[in-house]
Amino acid sequence: MTEARLEIIDLTVRFGGVRAVDGLSLSHSQGGVLGLIGPNGAGKTTVLNVLSGAAPPTSGEARLNGRRITGLRADRIARAGVARTFQNLQTFHSLSVLHNVLVPLEARAAAKPVVGLFAPLLRGGQLRQRAADLLGRVGMADQLDTPVASLPYGARRRVEVARALAADPRLVMLDEPLAGLSRAESDDLARLIRSVADSGVTVLLVEHDMVAVMRISDRVAVLEQGQLLADGTPAEVQADERVRSAYLGDELDYDPLLHKGDKRAEAAARQRVATDPDAAADPGLAADPDVAADQEAAADRPPQTTDRRRREPRAQQ
C-alpha cells in the first residue's frame, strides 16, 4: 500500500467568535504515527472533524494523496481511505460487537458498482470472517455476539478501533483512544496502534497520555489555540522550550500540567453522572469513561512513573 499523503493547507474553523482552528498548515507523507497534542480546546478534535467530513471548514482545505477532501461528504471521505474513532465513543449501541465491525465492511462491499446491493449478501461469510479477525486483533474474539451496549468502556473503545480499521483505510485518526483505559488495556492498544502503523497505515493520533504519545509517535505536532506551536520528532518536541513551558512542565510525567485542569473537570462530570440520573441520560456524558474503568486505571497507575519514562522509546528516525 502506498503511504497516505496528507496536506492541511491554511485551515481555519470558526464557531461564532471562537477560532477552533486558526490557519493551520501541516503536511505528512512519511507514514507511521503522527501524534497531535495540545491542551483541551486546542482544536484537535475539530481538525479530525474537518478531515473526516463531520464539520465543514470556514476556509482552507485538506488533501489526501493530492485529492481535495474538504467539502466531500463524510462517507465519500471514508471511501477515499480515511477512518476515525471518536473522543465521545460512537459505537452502534443496538448492534452486537461483530455487527459493529461488519457495518463498514458491508458499506464498502455495497459501494462496488453492478453487484452493488447484493455484494454484502453474497460475501456475507467472508465479511464476517474478516470482522472476526479484526476483533481478534483487538482482543475481542470471544465476545463477538455480545451487545456492544453491555460492554465496559475499555472494550467499547477497542470495538471502535476495530471498526475504524475494518475498511482498510490509508489514514486512521484516533481521538484520545487511550483515555479511560486501564494501564494494561492502554499498553495493549498502544502496541496495536504501533503495529497498525508498521503495517503501512498512517495513524493520526490525538492523545492526552504524553508518555504513550512520545513512545509510539514518529512525529509529534503541538496545537495551541488552533495554531501549530511545534512540530518534530518526539525528542525535538520534548526539548522545545515553548512546549516545555507551555504544557509539559519541567518533568515529563504521566499526569503533566496539561492534564490537571481538565482531569478535575472530568472527575466532576463523572461524579455527576454517577449521582444525577438526568446527567446519565445525556449520551455525550454517559459515554464518558465510566467510573469503574477510570478508578481501576487510577489504582493501577503508580505515583512515580519514572520507570515508564526510562523505557526506551521506539527507535526514532
Binding site: D276, D282, G284, L285
Partner: peptide, 13 residues
Amino acid sequence: DPAASRLVGISPR
C-alpha cells in the same frame, strides 16, 4: 453545551 452546563451546576432538566 449541556455537558459543560452540568459541570457548572446547571440542570438541563
